[in-house]
Amino acid sequence: MDSTVTDLPEAEFQALVDADSRIEPRDWMPDDYRRSLVRQIAQHAHSEIIGMQPEGNWITRAPSLRRKAILMAKVQDEAGHGMYLYAAAETLGVSRDELLDLLHAGKQKYSSIFNYPTLIWADMGAIGWLVDGAAITNQVPLCRCSYGPYARAMVRICKEESFHQRQGYESLLTLSRGTPEQKAMAQDALDRWWYPSLAMFGPPDAESTHTSKSMAWGIKRFSNDELRQKFVDMTVPQSEVLALTIPDPELRWNAERGHYDFTAPDWDELRRVISGDGPCNRQRMEHRVRAHNEGAWVREAAAAFAAKRTTGSRAAA
């Protein structure tokens, strides 16, 4: 056997990626590609699940029945997104159980944005507008990711996410046009969620270690800074219709660049929050682990029941 036989799958793999085609679960793929994808998809899935907490928080206190229904539907969608993503990760040869174990042990992460607290109702609107807006900016390019199951999950998610962003924006619009107290709520939410949303795109390109390989593999299509700029450019005009002030005195349109100049988020804060020192890290993990542990007897019962039926034995009293 000559060396080109062992080179063949690698060349085929790269050719598919370069042609903007899709790698499917049973295709050959480099170990690093598989590992990177498992990590990225899993962390995306964990983000959806953890993200249910800061929003689920306000379901029982929503100030109108319509808003309650919208919020329940949104959080339900997030559960669904988590499920699509865990399923996509599993096509790469891991189980959801393993991934959850890694999350609970702190060995896999979730988007650090969810380590911030939702203090007031207006935070629901801000999350829909800014956090989902940033997520969509990140996610649309992923719909063309080289790995088929991930790309397909992203197409489904992006469709559902557009409803989330619109409902958040509409909620803030209602507040900003409401009573003075409501308008103040909306401004307060924007003040607290603006910089964390910018930080969702990750550290500046100069500090990003994994980008070039991800780009060669068709996992990442645009750099962190490119996506961050795109998000700012789209969002600033939206804030003007809301008649709310983005908390950045340096924010201005730069005609030469054709983009908005803006103040970068505090990268130290991002590092601290990612490494566990954010306001809600501990709380989010405790909640997740508690729900998981308290539910263990339920899952065990379901498995035991299924096993009994399979072996044909009757359920014991």
Binding site: E160, S162, F163, Q165, R166, Y169, E170, L173, Q238
Partner: peptide
């Protein structure tokens, strides 16, 4: 692959349900 649209009976699942002023782009 194909995906299909979310359930039709839940009006608020559709982006067009929300009154967003025309001048707001990218939503």
């Amino acid at each position: 692959d194909s995906f299909f649209d979310p359930a039709g009976d839940k009006v608020y699942r559709h982006p067009t349900f929300y009154d967003i002023p025309d001048e707001v782009r990218h939503l």
